Simulated assay, not measured.
Amino acid sequence: MRARRFLSGLALTAALLGSSMGFAADESFSVAGIAIDKTAATAAQARDAGISEGQTRAWRRLIERIALGGDTSRLMGFTDKDIAPLLEGFEVEKETSSAVRYLGTLTYRFRPASVRALLRQVGAEELRAAPKPLLLLPLFRDGDKSLLWEPMNLWRQAFAARPLKTGLVPLVLPKGDEADVAALDPAAAYDATPLKLDPLLRKYDAYEGLVAEFVNAADGGSVTLRRSGQAIFNERFPINVGESREAYYERIVTRLQAELEAQWRKDRAVQPMTATGGDAGAVLETLAVTVPLRNLADWIEVKKRLEAVPGVRSAALKSMTRTEALIDLALTAPPDQAARNLAQRELKLSQESEGYVLRFQASAPAAPAPAKAP
C-alpha cells in the first residue's frame, strides 16, 4: 500500500521542510519512480541513507528533464546539503525492509520557485509540462482475448499503482465505471480516434487519448503506444529470469513514461520558448488557416491562446465574418510539430479539403442554425 511520508526522522528534516508541510502544486517538479536499495547496520539507517541518496538522483533527473540550454553542470553537481532547501518532501510508492536492508520506490517533490530561480541563474529555460493530461487506455491482448476495463487486467493495475500525474506528460487513468465501459469497448480502443474518445476526453478533462497496448507472448510481450490512432512507439520487452510479473510491468511502465517525456522534450527543444509569447525562431512556413467562430468571444480566446504556443511566430488576421476568421499562421516549426503544440492549448490544426482549419476544441457546441422562413 502506498503511504505518504515526509522526511521526519532524518537529520536534515528542518532544512527540507521549513515551516511548510504541503507538497508543490506543480507536478512537473515531482520525480517519481526513484528506486532505493540500501544496506546499513540497521534498517532505519539504511532507510535514511537511501532516501538521502535518492534525493540526489531525483534532483539530477529533474534538471535533465526541465532545463533547456544554459550551463547546468553546476546544478548537476549539487550535494545533499545543496538540494535539501529545494526539496518540498517525498512520498513512498512502496517499501519493504529487513534487519539491515531497505528497499523502496519514492516520489520526490521539489519547490518550483526555488528551482526556477536557479535555472535563471545558469541561463537555462524551463521546459513546461503539458497543461492537460493524456487519457491513458491500457489495452491488454492475449491471442483473441482483449482486456481494457476488467479488474483482472494486470496491465491496467500496473499503471494504477503509479503516480501518473507527475512529470512533463501527466496521464489520467479512467475509473472504469459503467459510463466508461459504455463509452468505449476494447475493440474500439485499438485504434481510438479523438472522435471515438470524445466522451472520455471531456469527462476526464484530457486533451488527447493514449492507447498503451500490451500484446502477451511466451517470453514476455510487446508494447505499442498510439495517439489518435497512430503508433508513436513500439518495443518488445522480454521478461527477465526470476522477475515477477509485477516487477516486469513496473519496469515497462517506467520505460514508457520516460519515452513520453523524451518525445515531449524533443518536440519542444527544437525551438526555444519565450516567456513573452510568440516563438523567436526563423519562420519555416506560413499557412493560410480558417478559424470557425460562433461569436467574437471565440476569436478573442483563440488569439489569446495563440500568443503562447511554441512553434508559432504570429497569427495575422486577414479577414473576419460572423462565422469564421482567415489568418496567416507563421510557423517556426514543421506543421505536424506545431499541431501538437497547438493541441496543448486546445487548438486543433488539421488539413481538410478546403485547406488548413484551426478549431478551438474547448468551445461549447454551436447553437443550431435558425430555421428557414417558410
Rank of each mutant, 00 (worst) to 15 (best):
V270H: 02
E95P: 08
D144T: 15
T42G: 08
P85Q: 07
N240T: 13
Q263I: 01
T254R: 14
T105F: 12
A333C: 04
R156L: 04
D328H: 11
S28T: 09
R156M: 02
Q55K: 12
G89K: 02
A316R: 09
K348N: 11
I66S: 00
Q230L: 09
N341E: 14
R202Y: 07
F237L: 10
V223Q: 03
D205S: 15
R156P: 00
S228I: 01
T254K: 14
E307Y: 00
D180W: 05
D185E: 11
L284I: 12
R251K: 05
V92C: 14
K303I: 01
W155K: 05
S314T: 07
A117D: 13
L7S: 13
A179T: 10
R5C: 13
D142E: 15
R305I: 08
R245Y: 00
Y207K: 11
A247T: 13
M21R: 15
E126T: 10
K175Y: 09
D298Y: 02
L306K: 03
A231C: 02
L171E: 07
E246N: 11
V357L: 06
S28Q: 12
Q257V: 01
Y249I: 00
L184V: 04
G77R: 09
E354T: 12
L317I: 03
V211N: 02
G221S: 04
D82K: 08
D298L: 05
K175D: 10
Q337K: 14
E324W: 01
L147M: 09
R268L: 07
L75V: 08
P138D: 06
R345W: 12
L147A: 06
R57N: 12
E250Y: 01
V357D: 04
Y249H: 11
L135K: 11
R340F: 03
G70Q: 09
P151Y: 10
P365N: 08
G18V: 10
S52I: 14
I36H: 15
D71K: 10
S319E: 13
R116I: 15
L62R: 04
S353D: 13
K38P: 02
I66M: 03
T193Y: 06
A160L: 13
R251Q: 03
I232N: 02
Q230C: 00
Q157F: 06
A67W: 10
R236M: 05
A371M: 11
G54C: 09
L326H: 09
D144W: 14
I327F: 04
G176E: 04
A217L: 07
T254Y: 04
K266W: 07
Y108I: 08
G77P: 06
R101C: 06
A333Q: 11
Q157S: 11
L86G: 02
E259H: 04
A269E: 12
A339Y: 09
A367M: 11
D26C: 01
F110N: 07
S98Q: 08
A192N: 05
E95L: 06
T321M: 01
V100D: 15
G33C: 04
L127V: 06
D142H: 14
A371Y: 07
G123H: 10
Q351Y: 12
L87P: 06
V289W: 10
T224Q: 15
Q157T: 10
G220P: 05
V92E: 12
L197V: 07
L342D: 04
L349G: 00
R227V: 09
W155E: 06
V211E: 01
A14T: 11
R345D: 04
L10E: 13
K203P: 03
A160M: 07
V289C: 08
